[in-house]
Design a protein around this nucleic acid. Structure first.
Lengths: 212, 212
DNA sequence: TCTCAAATATTGTTGAACAATCAGGCCTGA
DNA sequence: TCAGGCCTGATTGTTCAACAATATTTGAGA
């Protein structure tokens, strides 16, 4: 693993964790000094992260953390429905990723009592990543990874992320049950309902966002 | 538009057109001289194209044009079925992109008499890009763009690309007819049949490929 | 022929320099 | 007062040359 790849991962993580808030501009020289790399190396990572949709780039004005719009939220959920529901509808209930789904649900449930919103959100994400992993498709998984990262940016722009994850812990459990007891099509139906409802909540919260 | 963006597009086009064959290694200094840019600028474009899946990168061994494997072909078609069929199944038959689909079919048909395989392949691609455009989803369109470019690499590895496009010109016409006369679901069904059949042909031809 | 180490070539990374462009302040003229 | 234009400073775009880190090749010796 080269130095730059580590930097790319590191920067990506900082963005996803909210250490660099959506909309904030990333100065090349400042960040290069801070990260202790040269400008050229940093710029290479910028290209990769821009291609992943995490950074926006305007010529001669630099890059900034993308601040998804309402239209982006709609598009993100459209992608999620397209990919997740299709994968779920053709899933084998014996697929190893089902175990990952179960563990994610259990972890999310444990965080309900803790009121640990951050962990709950991560477990929620892990659940849906596991769903896409049912496909065994590297490209679908990578695409979902990018879309999912963009959705995290949306959460970062929202005031109260806790109330956004908690109601859906039970839904995820139900999706898993539907898949296991009634088959993939039932799972896909439950999943689509979840995604439509989640989209409504996120859009509502987006209207009350704190960051533009 | 900055110099580097133009270079990225240019290089991408050269790859898609087969001027740089799949598997061929791209020397930084040689290509930088040839393209008349600095190594650093070229490297930035490498990062972008790698993220798009057109180039493969191994640390300290450079980048090379990706030579998709049989597993890649399977994955590419899985993505195509997931995205294209889902979009088609929810399409509005009055969507402006339907006009693009029609024009693409007509152009492909005109190339049948010409035996212009290159133009036929491009028109075929344009037809399916138009299908995805039915979604009005920038992310789905971008993802399809990347997958579609990878598929072009597969075609470049294959001996006889002509025989691979010609039988499917009629199928595309039928898909369009199905959408217009019997609705989106019928269109999606026809499309899925097409994709499954096309996948079989491509896999077969891939077994007789000339490039590894 | 095989193995191992030195030589060679390529990529990874840096720092500095200059060119191109943008943002903001300042001045002028109406 | 305000619109327009110009200058200035700051940031990005791009190049170059150098060195470090790693891979590949060469070739000597057993």
């Amino acid at each position: 693993m080269t130095h730059r790849d580590a930097l790319t991962d590191h920067l990506r993580q900082k963005i996803i964790n909210g250490e660099l808030l959506p909309g904030s501009r990333l100065s090349e020289s400042a960040l290069a000094n801070q990260m202790d790399v040269s400008r050229n190396t940093l710029r290479e990572t910028f290209r990769a992260l821009t291609e992943q949709g995490l950074l926006g780039h305007v010529p001669y004005r630099g890059v900034s953390v993308k601040a998804p719009t309402e239209a982006d939220v709609l598009d993100i959920y459209r992608c999620r429905r397209t990919v997740e529901c299709s994968v779920m509808g053709q899933a084998h209930p014996q697929h190893p990723a089902v175990e990952r789904m179960l563990r994610a649900v259990q972890e999310a449930e444990s965080h309900v009592t803790d009121k640990n919103w951050l962990g709950m959100g991560s477990a929620n994400m892990a659940f849906h990543e596991a769903i896409v992993a049912l496909s065994d498709s590297p490209r679908l998984i990578r695409m979902f990874r990018n879309v999912s990262a963009e959705l995290r940016l949306v959460f970062l722009m929202i005031e109260d992320p806790g109330a956004l994850h908690e109601p859906f812990v039970k839904s995820n459990r139900e999706i898993l049950e539907a898949l296991l007891s009634d088959g993939p099509e039932a799972g896909a139906d439950a999943l689509e309902q979840y995604l439509l409802e989640s989209e409504r909540w996120v859009l509502g919260a987006y209207g009350r966002r704190r960051i533009d």
